[in-house]
Design a protein around this nucleic acid. Sequence first.
DNA 1: ACCTGAACACCGTTCAAGT
DNA 2: ACCTGAACACCGTTCAAGT
Lengths: 246, 246
Amino acid sequence: VITTPPDPAASGRREPLSRHRVVRAAITYIDANGLADLSMRRLAATLGVEAMSLYKHVSGRDHLLDAVVEALLDDLHGDPDVQPEAALDWQDYLRRVANGVRRIALDHPHCFPLVATRPPQAPWIRPPLRSLPWIDSFLRTLQLHDFGPRQAVDAYKAFTSFLLGHLLLEVAGMQVPIAPEDVPDRPSGRIGYSDLRGYAAIRDLSELLAEDSADSEFASSLESLLMRLAPLHDGDVISEPALRGV
Amino acid sequence: VITTPPDPAASGRREPLSRHRVVRAAITYIDANGLADLSMRRLAATLGVEAMSLYKHVSGRDHLLDAVVEALLDDLHGDPDVQPEAALDWQDYLRRVANGVRRIALDHPHCFPLVATRPPQAPWIRPPLRSLPWIDSFLRTLQLHDFGPRQAVDAYKAFTSFLLGHLLLEVAGMQVPIAPEDVPDRPSGRIGYSDLRGYAAIRDLSELLAEDSADSEFASSLESLLMRLAPLHDGDVISEPALRGV
DNA sequence: ACCTGAACACCGTTCAAGT
DNA sequence: ACCTGAACACCGTTCAAGT
């Protein structure tokens, strides 16, 4: 279960255990063993230290999990692919951000539920685009591309709903527990073909249901969102229906 | 913290504590005290019983939480508003189901994260439409309204993504913890206006961001999804873009 | 048949004590 | 200054014992 052995006789045995090192170790641990297995005691063991030492750097389990989320978002925010300057137009920018967030989800499937579901620090912060730097550059970039204030905010809302729904379901489809606290293996209670007696519609469509269409689903749903946002931006694409006031 | 007192001298003191009663008590407890506060011991106290008695009926905390989800979905599945026969056409059916699921979310904001994030029992099951009866009637109803097998499944996927993203964010915006395990109150770490120094775009748009547009956002995004699904159904509405193959 | 007391192996977190 | 041992108040879960 332990990922890294306590590092008993490594070179610099007394590396002073910074906050950064604790958070990084947590990400590694979650990626390897799942969120359900993470405890302060076990994480500490990974670092060759006792649980109580962690409290000098993270002030509690909850704050540690928040720090994990922040670290992942900061990594992405620094990615050259998602810099406003890298984008040709606003559609290109949204595609880059969308694919960047999706990369977090696919690279850290055990961590993503945390990004998606940790309670935001303010009611207007919407996962998964949930750090102040992200929200600020997102809004600023759209306005740079001629979105008005209301349009930029509407786009933020629609875009985050889209990302959250798709990516949480994509990660769930990888059979990673979505709920942070969950047990990773549920050998019992798993539904098999034989449980579908009485559910003819499901049985008839079972191959289609099981088909992994996450890639094309994500892409086409994103394009559909871009089309929906276009009339927001300027009236030249489609006049009906407007996003507002339905 | 305790909702219902242990019922010390009520009429039928020896009501025999069925599975149904345990699950119902759990829903009541979560609605009142939040998911974070639910423990087997505390729930038992609510029923005037010791924790160990619960295990005769629910086989563990995880199964109890699954049973809560199932109960909420079963309630909705029995609602006359969402019966296939009640719907005028497929758009009307999807609107009814969407609003039904939204009602669960708004009536039980502390429970909904469970519906959204409990690991599904099979990879092709997509929260929040996650019970076999629901999936079966959903697919059957769409096919009744001339959706082909592939179109029905695509609609299931797009519809669930839409519901999950919107409703999870709407509930989060009510400041209910999204993550099942979380502490409900975080007095520290809450972002206020003064923390926005350096984030001019956020500060400029703060009233728009804080505006509660959940109703219109849900409605207009739903209409947008219906438009997107229409060409799937038959070619008569819009020819471009098709959902598939983008 | 139904419920419970006591116990087990864990948690997160605290604080005075060690080095 | 940094880490730890021991302790506290909890968990979920088990099992033999009570009624």
